[in-house]
Design a protein around this nucleic acid. Structure first.
Lengths: 196, 196, 196, 196
DNA sequence: AATGAATGAGAGTTCATTCAT
DNA sequence: TATGAATGAACTCTCATTCAT
């Protein structure tokens, strides 16, 4: 019974991810989500407080996952700072492309959320920034990275760049070779970070 | 009445920019735009076909401007490819920050528009990509740029990066020193482009 | 100057007739009438109180004309009752088809008006009924017409029949030969009226 | 809930018939229909696609009924042509007066609909014409009816006459004795049809 | 007299959410 | 728990009418 319950919630969440990715949050109707999940639309409200809660739920899940991964990388004593950053870029790609629909939703709606009171979700994002900052500072301290770089600026720049590429790819996967894009991205990051 | 006509259209457009930037396109009501512009809501429809026309109008204006500027830079024979790219980054910052609200709208809604049939606007974007691609190829041909870089990937990466930074800044101008951010961005671009 | 004034009012009225006939009263916009008449839409209100006044104006004009004609026929001492009725049918056809657009408007909107307070127009209609009733009674008295016929019922029946035919014809003049239709109508009327 | 569903749709339809009959289609607001039916205005859209669908629904229902009845009469081998026509007039009266409000709506809006793309409804009307034409031709062939009569003209004439009478009666039932009107109408039809 | 920019009441329609079953 | 009928706030857009010029 517990499993059943979770299954229905999952079905609804997956349906919501699919529809939000395809049409965007505001353009998706609760009815469409319910139809896709093969439940009555009232049932959505049994598992989720409201439409926004559905969005929040999926987004925070992804951020949590990414945030955790980045923290692990950041704390791994076997990697040097450059290796860590490379692995972080890999992680971003992996998380966002493992469920490309979900990744698309997060990228699409992320900036909308920042304005609203979705603090938990935004909190995870800030947490993720810290993991990188920490690694960056380590890299500077150990002489790997260019100390004139502002880590915040760099981070937003890279995050924006990766987002845009993933967005393109998720919308039309055949237009970009995601593996190549990943390698190129890592190269850009490396070139920008290491001391000239 | 002499100047008035254009002035009122401008007032409405400015009000729309302000509201779209603050709340997003879908969250903004026509009534709010009219109130902000101090006109009756019906007046909006005297100057613009509908809500979407309002969005299209402001966005295409900015793209046209940027597209033209990038083309000029691209065709300037007095600049070498690296200088051109640097100037292009400057131009992006200048256009998007000269009217920070408008820039915010364009960045916020750009990906939504790609889905819809706003072809003229999207056309300008493609045009802009061409100017850069051309310059990049020139740079590779002249031995300035790393030929292993895929220009499309690089362009989207940089565009995403700049968008993200400008978005941050426009939302909260005091959180980032835009001049510093611009210099840093140009540095990242340069480091990524030039031959290792 | 007096002529000029009348000309403009006429142009507007003709434009209104044209548009009302083609699209119906409610479907016609003041702007369309003004455009058709080549005046600014504000000018319409210089000559007519409002949109309904425009309708009233054209309708009452036709009723007046018809009402007058029927009265003349009714009072003509040189005609016997059957001849009078035949001439009345002719007159209805002539009035409604002389300006087929106007006829169409009157037929289309007549029943709408009865509900509203367009008493003058409705008054003309009642006046017209009287002319017929009078002739009918004369016909009965003189032994021409079947006394079991209720003149009111007969009149509405005939008026409805003629309206329907004229409506058909005005909408698609090539679908009906109006002369033939007129002759047939007169024949139906005669057959119904005269003593079996 | 068992019967409820249909009952509510019926209540809305009846309310719409009432309002359309009283004020006409264009003059009736969805809110008024909903108020009359004692439902929220949104509920109207649970059962009907839109306002026009409501009109179409009621009109096509009546036409279908009449069209079927006339066909049956037309195909009845036990009746001679004159009896058939008499029964057809009876049928028209019966259908239009059984729900006088609905009849009024159909008569009022019928000509509006012909202009629009309400093909199904118009199709039924054409079907109805055929039943009559068939009977008329039979009557001519069997020597009952006057062969100089054009059946199309006659049909439109009669349909117009009946419509007008029913319209009058539906608007003010006390002004006309509907039974008398029916008998008179049948008499007019008979006199017009049979050989002089 | 003529204009057309400005107005704003008002209409149809949508859809997230509720709740009786 | 699941349902889907019912709700009504909210929103975009229309257009007859007014009035400053």
């Amino acid at each position: 019974m517990r499993l059943k319950k979770d299954q229905k919630a999952q079905a609804i969440l997956q349906a919501a991810i699919k529809m939000f990715a395809e049409k965007g949050y505001h353009q998706t109707k609760i009815t469409e989500i319910a139809d896709t999940a093969n439940v009555a639309h009232g049932t959505v409200y049994t598992y989720f407080k409201n439409k926004e809660d559905l969005l929040y739920n999926m987004i925070s899940k992804l951020w949590e996952k990414l945030s955790l991964t980045l923290e692990e990388i950041s704390n791994n004593p076997d990697l040097d700072p450059l290796q860590k950053v490379q692995k972080m870029v890999d992680a971003v790609f992996d998380v966002f492309t493992s469920d490309s629909k979900l990744g698309l939703v997060v990228i699409k709606e992320h900036n909308q959320l920042r304005k609203k009171g979705m603090d938990a979700s935004v909190g995870e994002y800030e947490h993720l920034l810290n993991s990188f900052s920490h690694t960056f500072e380590q890299g500077v301290a150990e002489g790997f990275f260019d100390p004139t770089i502002d880590p915040d600026t760099f981070l937003h720049f890279v995050f924006g760049g990766l987002s845009q590429l993933i967005h393109r790819w998720a919308n039309d996967p055949r237009s970009l070779n995601i593996q190549k894009v990943k390698e190129q991205s890592k190269y850009f990051v490396q070139q920008s970070l290491i001391k000239g």
